[in-house]
Design a binder for these strands. Structure first.
Lengths: 201, 201
DNA sequence: CCTGACTCTTAAACTAGTTTAAGGGTATTT
DNA sequence: AAATACCCTTAAACTAGTTTAAGAGTCAGG
């Protein structure tokens, strides 16, 4: 497939890589031949528990969530992925074992996906893809470590304030139940926190 | 510096890389010229809050912890690093900004450290280092995500049981106050959990 | 050998967060 | 247009986890 300026999804990805080590012409061509565009409907899944996670996905537009479901049926949100975010279940993707989580679209979304074998091909043949994905994963690591720190040291109210700072647009884009699930509290208690914050912001 | 079989610290690192993409002779030589051995006393620091984290460290023996200190002076353990673990404050290391955390030896430890510029040199000149560190960071990411899931979905008792599975040797090697700090609970409550577990294991 | 600094435990009083239940609002489906 | 499902809030009763305090055990240092 030839590159052209009308291929807006792919140009979003190429621009994304400009934040790291920008791609050469040949590397861009490899992107276009190994990434596949996909539109996901609201409530559509790109991964279900029990399946092997076959793709590393880049979100061009929309919003997805990754979550685990516990024995009692409750959902626990591990990640929201919006424009220019990556999302995959790393544990399942590399081990090729069944995943413990779901990845579901919260809004209608456009994504670009690469399959496991194709990503390995890029890693093997282009130093730069190993490097750029190293950096992408490092940044995810930093985010996760901050979140762990919040979880072990901060109250629910502090965690919510931090969430608002980090994702200012999300409370308008998704139900509060989803945010409560991300913070590790009940929707009822989040409602109380929000009421308290109005009185003393 | 020439490689020889007496250099036990470095051979531990070379063996470690055999779990990923094993190193060539030349790459091993680069290790020996860019990693520096260090012995750290119990309670010795390799990073203090406010300093820039200058090293990526590989633990050959002993045990270190990374922790943040909150406004009230309480410590919150983010990571324990034992034999064959890596430890660094990624956020500070790559941004070269002051760190928010401490890294301190819990036991007398032997480590191998590489400086920021030297690691960039290895990344630039050897595809394999970018690749191996990508994999190392991915595994850390998987660990952190599991820990986040525990934090948002499981009770303190469940988290402690999971901790025992993951680090069976640690309760013998370090004070329980350290474990409580890692789990995000008070030492008093951990004590209660331990009592309960004896009665109904 | 003694002292002081940590560590672990127990227990009572407290607080942060959950559960259960109910009511009203707003989309989405039929 | 009605019906259903979902979402948000409130409140009362409950439970998980914290705080404060006190006592006993253990270890390193003078």
């Amino acid at each position: 497939m030839a590159l052209n300026s009308e291929n807006t999804l792919l140009t979003a990805l190429i621009n994304h890589f400009k934040n790291y080590f920008p791609l050469t012409g040949k590397e861009k061509e490899e992107l276009s031949s190994h990434f596949r565009e996909r539109k996901i409907k609201r409530r559509g899944f790109i991964l279900q528990q029990g399946d092997v996670c076959k793709h590393f996905s880049f979100v061009v537009s929309g919003c997805l969530k990754m979550y685990a479901v516990d024995q009692t049926g409750k959902e626990h949100n591990l990640q929201f992925a919006m424009e220019n975010d990556w999302i995959t279940d790393l544990a399942s993707f590399y081990s090729e074992k069944p995943s413990m989580v779901y990845i579901e679209a919260i809004e209608p979304s456009s994504i670009l996906q690469i399959e496991h074998a194709d990503l390995l091909y890029l890693y093997t043949n282009y130093h730069k893809f190993d490097r750029n994905f190293r950096i992408i994963v490092e940044q995810r690591c930093i985010e996760l470590q901050n979140r762990v720190l919040q979880n072990i040291s901060a109250s629910a109210e502090e965690r919510y304030r931090y969430f608002l700072q980090q994702y200012p647009t999300l409370p308008n884009r998704l139900p509060h139940t989803q945010i409560a699930s991300y913070l590790g509290i009940t929707p009822e208690f989040l409602s109380k926190i929000r009421k308290d914050l109005i009185n003393k912001p």
